[in-house]
Design a binder for these strands. Structure first.
Length: 364
DNA sequence: AAAGAGATCAACCGCTTGTGT
DNA sequence: CACACAAGCGGTTGATCTCTT
């Protein structure tokens, strides 16, 4: 309450932008920067609300926007990041240089979501459909086990969050320093360029320069960093980290994607996007799965194998084996994060501590 | 060639968050 | 601390385009 609607004034135009309007907006921002969006339309001579202008600028007119078809690599990155972050489109967009959150959101809703669904993967949870996992016998035990695992994960991640609080401070300091130097060299009339992320910090930049040709480890690490430094609040960061930990359990499925992707790279595909000359096929790696080259079972095998292994462990009462498995699993994830963080020249203090630093199962 | 269905994506809406007073 | 405002964000809509019959 008390907040006036953004387009309360009558006579403000809505709907598609005309080239003339685009030109006015572009010319004004190039000359003065956007400044206060609410007052911009009047100054620029536009019959639009500030919100509409901001949207038009950020989603369409901004010079650092790449338009057109998403590359295979971008698709893969989106899927991975969505598994970790959920529908946090702006966060995902920070890891896809020159792509807007709106564009990514649209692409997810119109392409990727459907593909995953067709493959029998729940696009929300990124898990194989629940019916594939829940067998009639022993499902209760599995649910209890899953809950225990989740609880374990939450405890473990909560402990790690303490270390990440420190990282958040460091990341922000780095981002501040980077943006200060960027502003000093930015063009006079344009808004300050977003801080580059190459130095390991400032990953909340919409034009992050993080290399996406790197392994998924880099993605995971950068996402965790974003959760630390780019989150809106501590609670959001906590939620992000917990979600990330939970979603990381789907790593085997992601690995299957990678495998399918590699196989596809060796195929003589046509219709390759010009920017994907590195061998990315324009048909999309999921098509490989859909056309039968790689069966659904192939895709599901890694995840299913894990589930099966756990079920067997249950049957055998082998809690020891399971504990080892989980420990190894989380160790491997952390190693990925640490390796990536180290290679990104993060200070030694920024490297996430290994589970040995604190007991994986910890009382609150 | 025309009509209908489906896909796409720019833009809007309303809520949340951050910040200043 | 409470409030107001600006900006950001994600969900949704609707116009337009493309494909299919």
């Amino acid at each position: 309450m008390g907040r006036s609607p953004c387009c309360e004034k009558e006579g403000l135009k809505k709907g598609p932008w005309t080239p003339e309007e685009d030109q006015k907006l572009l010319a004004y921002i190039e000359q003065h920067g956007h400044g206060c969006w609410r007052s911009l339309p009047a100054k620029a001579g536009l019959q639009r609300c500030g919100k509409s202008c901001r949207l038009r600028w950020t989603n369409y007119l901004r010079p650092d926007i790449k338009r057109g078809k998403f590359s295979l690599q971008e698709e893969q990155t989106i899927i991975q990041l969505h598994a970790l972050l959920g529908n946090r489109w702006s966060a995902i967009a920070t890891h896809l240089p020159k792509r807007t959150d709106n564009e990514i959101k649209n692409y997810w809703n119109t392409h990727l979501k459907k593909r995953l669904a067709k493959m029998g993967i729940d696009p929300v949870t990124h898990k194989p459909r629940s019916d594939a996992l829940a067998t009639s016998a022993g499902s209760t035990a599995q649910h209890a086990k899953a809950a225990a695992h989740l609880s374990h994960t939450a405890q473990w991640e909560s402990a790690r969050l303490e270390a990440e609080a420190r990282l958040a401070r460091e990341a922000k300091l780095r981002a501040l320093a980077a943006s200060a130097s960027a502003s000093a060299s930015a063009p006079l009339h344009l808004p300050p360029a977003p801080a580059p992320a190459a130095a390991g910090g400032g990953l909340d930049s919409p034009t992050s320069t993080l290399s996406f040709s790197d392994s998924s480890a880099a993605t995971l690490a950068s996402v965790l960093e974003a959760a630390r430094g780019g989150g809106r609040s501590a609670s959001t960061a906590l939620a992000s980290v917990l979600e990330a930990a939970h979603a990381a359990a789907m790593q085997p499925v992601q690995a299957a994607f990678e495998e399918a992707f590699k196989e596809q790279q060796q195929q003589p595909w046509g219709d390759v996007d010009g920017e994907d000359a590195a061998g990315f096929a324009g048909t999309g790696f999921t098509d490989l799965l859909l056309d039968g080259s790689l069966s659904h079972q192939d895709v599901m095998r890694p995840a299913a194998a894990r589930v099966d292994a756990e079920a067997e462990a249950d049957a055998a009462g082998s809690q020891q084996q399971e504990t080892e498995e989980e420990k190894n699993y989380w160790d491997s994830i952390l190693n990925l994060v640490n390796t990536s963080a180290a290679s990104a020249s993060l200070p030694a203090s920024a490297v996430v501590p290994t589970p040995e630093a604190y007991s994986p199962v910890r009382e609150f």
